Amino acid sequence: MIKTISMLDFPNAKINLGLLVTEKRPDGFHNLESCFYPMGWCDALEIVQADELTFTMSGLPVPGNPDSNLCLKAYKLLQQGFQLPPVHMHLHKVIPMGAGLGGGSSDAAFTLKQLNSLFELNLTPEKLEDYARQLGSDCAFFIRNEPVVAVEKGDVFKPTSVNLDGYTCVLVYPGIHITTAEAYGNIVPKKPSCGIEMFLKQDVGVWKEVLKNDFEEALFPSYPELAGIKQQLYNAGADYASMTGSGSTIYGLFKKEPANLVFPGHYLLWKGLL
């Protein structure tokens, strides 16, 4: 029995608290170590039972063929094991692409969760994570959507006690789309002398000296405006500022809401209390 014929949800972004690229894998991917932390910057995804499978989008333009969107891929992946009725999916895109925020991965994971609930598939979080890993390296994070330390390809998780409740986070996307290939092109993997978990246990005010994103060193020389945004956030009083993912969003963590933050009009900004 179907509980309802439609469902609306809000796939959210994430940031990386530190990101170390530790080695290149035989399969061509890279092993990494990072802390994934959910953010309140959200898309909107509605799934409605329909006579035929359709998918539409609004909001920020998404490059590429809509037929290759991860939401559709998530539906078709589940369809391999279940007799899913056709649905209409509408995605309103708010989280920018190529921004290191995991928006596409979140959309895919939320599609899996919504279909699981809508059609009472009774898939456990563990099984949903298995499906999500087939769609993308960090898709599985958004199934439980809680802070974790991510290792291997970013799809194996360890619990973490890091808690940013009470901090205000400012996310700044300058409109620079950085492809994964470009981001990894200048990366030299290296084994860290100390794991990220040790740094996360320290006060946020200490992170500036110890918690690094390897992609900053690789990308800041080509995109000096990114380094400028990071410095502007520190000048405004951020306890910690960093690039998230492989760019190009820069975020700052503030103990109190910052004032006098002014960026060019074409930048996309999000600010929220964690």
Rank of each mutant, 00 (worst) to 15 (best):
S106Q: 04
D107P: 03
D107T: 07
A109C: 08
A109Y: 02
F110L: 11
T111N: 07
N116D: 15
S117F: 07
S117P: 00
L121H: 10
L121M: 04
L123M: 11
P125L: 00
E126C: 07
L128I: 01
L128M: 12
E129L: 08
Y131A: 05
A132Q: 08
Q134S: 13
Q134A: 14
G136S: 08
S137N: 04
S137Y: 01
S137M: 01
D138F: 02
C139S: 09
F142E: 04
F142H: 06
N145T: 03
E146T: 14
P147K: 10
V151N: 09
K153M: 06
G154R: 00
G154E: 09
D155N: 15
V156F: 13
F157W: 05
S161K: 14
S161I: 14
V162F: 12
L164R: 07
Y167H: 06
T168G: 02
T168Q: 09
C169M: 13
V170P: 00
V170W: 05
V172T: 12
V172R: 03
Y173G: 07
I176L: 12
T179N: 02
T179I: 06
T179Q: 10
T179L: 08
T180F: 02
A181C: 01
A183L: 00
G185V: 01
G185C: 11
I187G: 01
